[in-house]
């Protein structure tokens, strides 16, 4: 039963909390690191989060625009666009 399980002390709770917070931050950091690898212009920089986000959004827009142009040109040449790339 749950009552048989020893209660966590305050210190243990605190430690758990700290550990999970660190884990969360690590995950966010990894996400930012991935974006900096993908997005051009962010490679070597000591990035700030807001800059990484903004540049990622801009880059994503560029890629989507490129996608549209490619689709138009392919279709103009009579090509078929695969469904997953539309």
């Amino acid at each position: 039963m749950a009552s048989e399980r020893p209660r966590l002390s305050e210190q243990e709770k605190k430690n758990n909390h700290i550990a999970s917070e660190q884990k969360r931050r690590m995950a966010i950091r990894e996400g930012f690191d991935r974006l900096t690898e993908i997005v051009p212009g962010l490679e070597g920089q000591g990035r700030s989060e807001s800059i990484v986000l903004k540049k990622s959004v801009d880059h994503m827009r560029d890629v989507l625009n490129e996608r549209q142009q490619l689709i138009q040109r392919i279709q103009a040449l009579g090509g078929e666009i695969p469904a997953e790339l539309r």
């Binding site: 969360r24 995950a27 966010i28 990894e30 996400g31 930012f32 991935r34 974006l35 993908i38 997005v39 990622s56 880059h59 994503m60 890629v63």
Partner: peptide, 11 residues
């Protein structure tokens, strides 16, 4: 972190 990872995958 989920947003970042999804965005990166999407990109």
């Amino acid at each position: 972190s989920a947003v970042l990872i999804h965005a990166a995958n999407y990109l």
